[in-house]
């Protein structure tokens, strides 16, 4: 029984030990300012890794989320700053902040659904299909922005990334809402149960009468949507859409999922685990900066931590 509890909380314990170590080494870590800062930084990865958790639970993978983030970010910023103009017909459509956000989410979800459609329709490995989307969407960003950042988005939009509500940064609110939504999906809905079932045994799920294609397409759609939400956070925080936004964010998201104990072979894992995984990565990043570790070493350390986490997880499952 004790062993069970230990297993369930081991990533939490690892996080606490990490916090303790950093706070002993740096007096700047445990300041309110820094902690809010960490949480705000983490919120982007939390959003992406929420979608990634569902995908990985289903024994899939989504490499395209970083690019989808950038694409949604560009769409969001582009529409808010200069709308859609078709000079040939003398048409101009302006977008409010909300309109831009809705458009970005629609586009992100659409790209995700397309991922799911390609994977199920042509029976492609998710790795390959989303790898293709990674370059397609990034190329789309470059085409749309011509490689130039889109700025001047107005002060109203900035609130999402930099504002506070009830003493808590808005991005933290948003990521908490996303986390709760995913917890609800995975724990309380039949759809969530199907995700676990497909990840655990796709063939048996199919034979049980589950429309596995529809579930898969929906899950990749959610992953795209979460990437779009993260894209809006990033855009608002910088008050600008960067063409190279979200570069290699998919790796951080996968790392969070894996550190959180979700099996890459599917069927096993939790949303809460992923949250802890994302926080571990965020705290680690922050701590290494506070300790003046060179950025090159930071990457090495991060990689080692991921390795360690997975090894521990694997051993504890024996």
């Amino acid at each position: 029984m004790n062993k069970e509890i230990l297993k369930k909380t081991q990533s939490l314990i690892a996080l606490l030990i990490l916090c303790l170590m950093i706070s002993l080494l740096s007096d700047k870590f445990l300041t309110t300012n820094n902690l809010w800062n960490v949480l705000r930084q983490i919120s982007v990865n939390v959003c992406i890794s929420m979608g990634m958790t569902l995908v990985v639970l289903m024994a899939g993978i989504d490499l395209s989320v970083g690019s989808i983030l950038a694409f949604s970010s560009a769409i969001c910023a582009g529409l808010i700053s200069h709308g859609i103009a078709i000079p040939a017909f003398d048409i101009y459509i302006g977008f409010t902040v909300l309109g831009g956000i809705m458009a970005a989410i629609t586009v992100g979800t659409g790209l995700g659904l397309f991922n799911g459609w390609v994977i199920t329709k042509f029976d492609l490995p998710p790795f390959v299909a989303t790898l293709a989307m990674l370059t397609i969407a990034r190329g789309g960003v470059m085409l749309y922005t011509q490689g130039i950042p889109i700025s001047n988005l107005g002060s109203g939009f900035e609130f999402i990334g930099s504002g506070w509500i009830l003493g808590i940064p808005v991005p933290v609110w948003i990521s908490v809402i996303m986390v709760l939504a995913m917890v609800f999906i995975t724990k309380k809905t039949v759809f969530g149960r199907y995700i676990y079932a497909i990840g655990g045994n796709e063939k048996a799920s199919f034979l049980s009468g589950i429309s596995i294609h529809k579930v898969k397409i929906a899950v990749y759609g959610i992953a795209g949507m979460m990437a779009a939400v993260a894209g809006i956070l990033v855009t608002s925080r910088l008050n600008s859409a960067q063409p190279n936004a979200g570069l290699s964010y998919e790796l951080d998201a996968i790392a969070a999922v894996v550190i959180g104990g979700t099996s890459l072979s599917g069927g096993v894992g939790t949303v809460s685990g992923t949250v802890i995984g994302a926080v571990i990565i965020g705290v680690l990043n922050n701590g290494l900066v506070l300790l003046n570790v060179s950025p090159f070493w930071q990457q090495v350390v991060k990689g080692l931590v991921i390795l360690l986490a997975v090894i521990i997880d694997k051993r504890s499952k024996r």
Binding site: V190, G192, R193, Y196, A197, G200, L207, K214, G267
Partner: peptide, 26 residues
């Protein structure tokens, strides 16, 4: 093992797998 059960899930989830409706709550 390969086609009948989701081995990593409990008995009750396996039994209900054929009768759940995707639009419902658990």
């Amino acid at each position: 093992k390969m086609e009948g059960l989701v081995l990593g899930m409990d008995i009750s989830s396996n039994i209900s797998l054929t009768t759940l409706k995707v639009t419902e709550l658990l």
